[in-house]
Design a binder for these strands. Structure first.
Lengths: 177, 177
DNA sequence: CTTAGATTTCAGTCTTTCCTGAAATTAACG
DNA sequence: CGTTAATTTCAGGAAAGACTGAAATCTAAG
């Protein structure tokens, strides 16, 4: 028998808030609440306990945990002599943020980048679309390419470096002046 | 009579793509499609033309335009001797991006920041919640405060400075080493 | 003040997404 | 293998969200 995590008022409040924000974050309420519980829980939890804590169907937990795994926010562990799956969330908040940003870029930006590339190719043989509009698309493509390229560079900088840069705040501006 | 904008295959493709991405971007399809049309159109458009171009109800256009205005992505202009509202989208892609980021921060981050501040206050008189969990919340609060503070600083840097910094890419790292 | 075009509101309907519970599948153990 | 616990799948129902069209409201001009 596991210690499922005691639902104190504070924890409950957070779980409910996560759930309410779910819509804005583009995920379902269950997924958000499960993530809240796992993020806060010091110990990994089993699916049954999560269902119990949140009062949702066991199957729902299963599906939601799958989604959290595709987001790379939750992973499975095991306990010796217990064949049930134990789930744990990334605890490092920096890690959580960058993971979410990576995923969002992949889902929200990359497909549009691809569309714009396709349109740029088509533009050559397209004599219907006004130049002005083609240019706007080209500008957007160029901008997104530059932006994502920059993101990749920053993303790959070692964390201590990034931290130092961030702590400099707008004083980094002096570098370029 | 306005020139409503000719729906060339390229434009149609973009409009459809915007519409398909809508779900991932956290807005409705109509809103996304209307934004696509307005973003591409060299001229401001009236609501009726938008409804016609996209084949959606006039009332839907009205509501969606309101939402685009709350996002600060669309504004109203007028034409002399015509009392209809003409709608135009921000055309500067950099502007569009920062506007969206600002709004998203306001909707997706700020409420959680507030919750964490409230929880931090409560934590003092809360003897039920394990220290470990309170600490995790405190860490998250600290992180978000630092992150948003940094965002505000960068956000207020003049655009040319930001551009230069971006173009330096990961070479800015040398500054701190 | 009246009229007519323009816009918005909103109740009802449609669509999509989410969730449940039963049944099917998987996997460990004897 | 057969048994049993654990997990997943999925059809159907529930909830949430989006869209329509008619009616109400607004606004400019006569």
């Amino acid at each position: 028998m596991t210690t499922p995590l005691k639902m104190t008022p504070t924890i409950q409040r957070c779980v409910l808030h996560w759930g309410e924000m779910a819509g804005r974050w583009g995920i379902s309420r269950s997924v958000a609440q499960i993530h809240a519980v796992l993020f806060l829980s010091p110990e990994p939890l089993i699916a049954d306990d999560i269902a119990g804590l949140l009062g949702i169907a066991r199957s729902n937990v299963s599906v939601s945990l799958k989604e959290l795994q595709t987001w790379d926010l939750v992973s499975i562990t095991h306990v010796l002599g217990d064949r049930r799956d134990y789930f744990q969330a990334r605890k490092d908040i920096w890690d959580v943020l960058t993971t979410i940003m990576d995923q969002r870029k992949r889902r929200e930006i990359d497909p549009t980048l691809q569309l714009l590339r396709d349109c740029a190719v088509d533009a050559k043989r397209d004599h219907e679309t006004p130049e002005q509009i083609k240019e706007r698309l080209a500008t957007m493509l160029e901008f997104l390419e530059e932006m994502t390229g920059w993101y990749d560079q920053v993303r790959n900088m070692p964390r201590p470096t990034l931290l130092k840069l961030m702590r400099m705040g707008n004083r980094v501006a002096k570098v370029v002046s």
